[in-house]
Design a protein around this nucleic acid. Sequence first.
DNA 1: CGGGGCGTTGACTGAGATCAATTATGGTGG
DNA 2: CCACCATAATTGATCTCAGTCAACGCCCCG
Lengths: 243, 243
Amino acid sequence: MAIRSDALTAKLSHLYPLSADEEEVLQNAFSRVEDFARDRDIVREGTKPTQCSLLLDGFVFRYKVLPDGKRQILSFQVPGDVFDTQTYLLDTMDHTVAALTPCRIAILRHDVMREITERFPRITRALWKETLVEAAILREWLTSAGRRSAFQRIAHLICEVFVRQRAVGRTRGLEMDWPITQVEIGDALGLTHVHINRTLQELRRDGLIRLGGGTLEVLDWRGLMKGGQFDPSYLQLVHVDLP
Amino acid sequence: MAIRSDALTAKLSHLYPLSADEEEVLQNAFSRVEDFARDRDIVREGTKPTQCSLLLDGFVFRYKVLPDGKRQILSFQVPGDVFDTQTYLLDTMDHTVAALTPCRIAILRHDVMREITERFPRITRALWKETLVEAAILREWLTSAGRRSAFQRIAHLICEVFVRQRAVGRTRGLEMDWPITQVEIGDALGLTHVHINRTLQELRRDGLIRLGGGTLEVLDWRGLMKGGQFDPSYLQLVHVDLP
DNA sequence: CGGGGCGTTGACTGAGATCAATTATGGTGG
DNA sequence: CCACCATAATTGATCTCAGTCAACGCCCCG
């Protein structure tokens, strides 16, 4: 089955350009498409999936729930992200993946994955690289949670999501979709939604962003980067031009 | 050059068992051995290394320093860890790697790495899996920094380091080397060394650990796991028997 | 034996949490 | 088109865990 994902093509062009043939192989590897409604779990902690996924449209996020009921969000995925590559090599899911918005996903079965990774070392490298960038993002999130103030964490997160969406053509100038609620921002950054609310007001007061109606507009990119100590190089998206 | 690393052999036996031939190939891939003194940087942020490393002996850690001088420690590596695999696929280091103790490292050049990963898909998978486990550890650290109390974070870290050392035969019963200072624990967990000190005293008071002279003894493994919400499955070390 | 890490302690402060309402907002059915 | 309801955002008052600042002690090593 041929999936034509402009987002995947766009991302590979930045991350690890494949030849036309290789990209053909990759896009033909997906066996079907599935839709999920907002808040629906896609892969649950403790299960042993037999497939990986490519996000075609919408937002997806990963999270853990602790014994005491607290939740930590571990990442957001944007269109073009091949996620759950880890399920191919790790036995059991250590976290849950869920739909942040209604979304569409293309399925890549593990047996197909194995065939491709044995025959196409360059595709393997592209997928491996994607998991390494995920780790780099995790390091940045850890740094935020450990050592950055609430203001810095939010600014940094906004910068990251903006650059990643921009890389796959999902921004309109300085504006992008922002379907992430304040509770979710809090669970991602290790803060409460009350404090997120107050800090977002600071960001607005400082003229850095405009936010509302599911849309976020960056009003001062330099200021936002500075405020969040953001340096995009960890995302490895070499040719994304920024404001 | 043949490196004989019992730690690597031990770890592979848990993580991704290789055939005798494959392990031979891997251990022969290392081109030389280097020693580093405590606190010496091994790979610096912003550089473009041309080699990966295997930790033979000692402790290594990764960290970032923020513009305001704060430090976040991102991981600890124990003997048997093949680290900086990421340098093979990512362009520039997004963080620094340094020696926590005097340590010995075996070097794996990128060109050798490329040759091996093109010829031996199972070795590739073992190395890829190692990077995926690193990401799982990062998710757990992020969860600690975001949603766990100081007491829980420390207990969780001790459990993790204990299990990982045990997997490579570096524990003596319930005792292990613990060369990590309180400042370093603080920088790893997003806390101050003062608060680490007070919380360690709580752990001792609760009869969970004995700590001193570079050695940590677990006095109550169940209690420590419970106190840290620790579940070892994310480490993917299937056959490590625990207390 | 002295100096520099490292660990420990006390007094005080503060960023962010908690608790508890109240006010938008957007989707839905009548 | 509007009333209704659930979800999300906002606000205020108060509390707390951890940070900050500043000593001081300990111990190892040269």
